[in-house]
Design a protein around this nucleic acid. Sequence first.
DNA 1: CAAATATACTAAACAGTGTTTAGTTTCCAA
DNA 2: TTGGAAACTAAACACTGTTTAGTATATTTG
Lengths: 205, 205
Amino acid sequence: MGIVERKEREKAEMRRKIVDVAVRMFVEQGYEKVSIRNIADKIEYSPATIYLYYKDKDQLLYDVQTEAFDSLYKAFAEQVTSSDPFERLEQLAYAYLDFAWKNPELYDLMFIIKAPMNAIAEEEKWKGGDDSYNALVNLVSECVEKKLIRQNDPALAALSMWAFAHGFVSLQLRGRCQKATGYTEEEMPDVIRRAVKEYLQLIKA
Amino acid sequence: MGIVERKEREKAEMRRKIVDVAVRMFVEQGYEKVSIRNIADKIEYSPATIYLYYKDKDQLLYDVQTEAFDSLYKAFAEQVTSSDPFERLEQLAYAYLDFAWKNPELYDLMFIIKAPMNAIAEEEKWKGGDDSYNALVNLVSECVEKKLIRQNDPALAALSMWAFAHGFVSLQLRGRCQKATGYTEEEMPDVIRRAVKEYLQLIKA
DNA sequence: CAAATATACTAAACAGTGTTTAGTTTCCAA
DNA sequence: TTGGAAACTAAACACTGTTTAGTATATTTG
C-alpha cells in the first residue's frame, strides 16, 4: 500500500508550493512585505496550515534561502567556463555581482538579513551556499597551487575575495556607495566591476 | 520672554532622553527587540508621546544612527595617531574593525539594516558617517599623492577599502565566516585583522 | 484675574504581524 | 460501518507601528 508514500509526496508537494510562492513574493515585493498571511492567501490556505509544514517563519525562510543558493550555483555553472583558472576566478566574481544586481531581494535573504540564520542554529550544519562557496575555495586553491595569485592560504584568500565582493554588494544594496562616491545608481555596478577587477589584478601573481 | 526658548530646550531634552535610552536598548538587546512601546516604558511616557517628537520609528533610528556615527568618529580620532599616512590607514582599518566587534548592534544599525535609510530618502542629504568616511577618503588621497599605495583613484581606493572591511564585518556578524572557514567565533576577529593587513600589504606601493 | 487658546500628554483603537489552540472536516484502517 | 488519525481552519493571543480623540496643563489674550 503506497498510501504513506503518497502522503509523503503530497506533503513534499505542499512544501514546494509554499516555498515557490514565497520565493516569487520575495523577489517581487521584498522580504519585509511578505507575511505568512500573504503567502497563505496566495496558495489559498489558512495561515495556520503553513505551520503544519514549517515550524516557524525562519524555517520557511531557510528553505527559500536554499532555493536561492541553488540559483546562484546554477549561475556559476553557466558563467564560469574558461579553461584558465584565474579567468574562471574572474568569471565567478562577475557572476556573483550579476546575481546580486538581478536578484537583490534574494541576495538580502541569503547574506544580509538575520532572520533565516536563527533557524540554522538549530540545524545540524548549515549547508546553504556550501556548493557555491566550495566552488570558490576550489578555484582559489587551484590558483594558489599553480601560483597564479600572490596569496598562499587558500581559505583566507577565498574568504577575502568573498568579503570584498560582498562588501561592495551589501553597501550598494543599502545605497551607501552612491552616497559615498557621488556616482548614480546605474553607474555603480560598473564601478564595482572595475574595483573587483582591480582587486584581482592586485592579487595576480 | 524666553518661554519659546525654554520650550525648545525642553523639546530637545526630550529628544535626547528618547535617543539615549534607544541607543542603550539597541546596544543591550539588539535592533529587533526594541519597540516603541519598550522605549516609551523605559522613559515612563506613553508610546504616543514619542510620536510628538519623532515622525516615525525610522526618524528615531536615524538619530540613533547619527549618535553611533559620532562614536565611530571618536574612535577614529583616538586610535588614528601615527605620523605616517600609510600607518594611519592601518590604524583606521583596525579601529573600524574594533568598533564593529565592540558595538555589533550599532554596526548593524549603521550599515546593515534597511530601516533608517527610509528616513534618509526624505532627508536633503545623508550626513551620517560623512565625517568618518571623509577621514578615510582624505587619508587615502594623501597616500595616493605621496605614492604610498598602488592605486591612483582615491575615491575608488577608499570605497574598495571600506567594502573590504565591511564585507568581513557583515559576514562575521551573520556568522558566515565561521561556517565558511571553520575557525571559532573568538578566532575570527584576529583572522580578519590578518586578512585586512594582507590587503593593505597588497595595495602598498 | 478670567476666559480662550495653544501645548503636552495619553487611553484606546486600528491594522497589521507571527503563532497557538481548539474544533471541525476529511480520509484511511480495522 | 465505525473509530481514530490526519488535514485543515476560525478565532484568539500577544505582539508590532501608528493614529485619533479627548483630557489635563500651561500660556496668551481680553
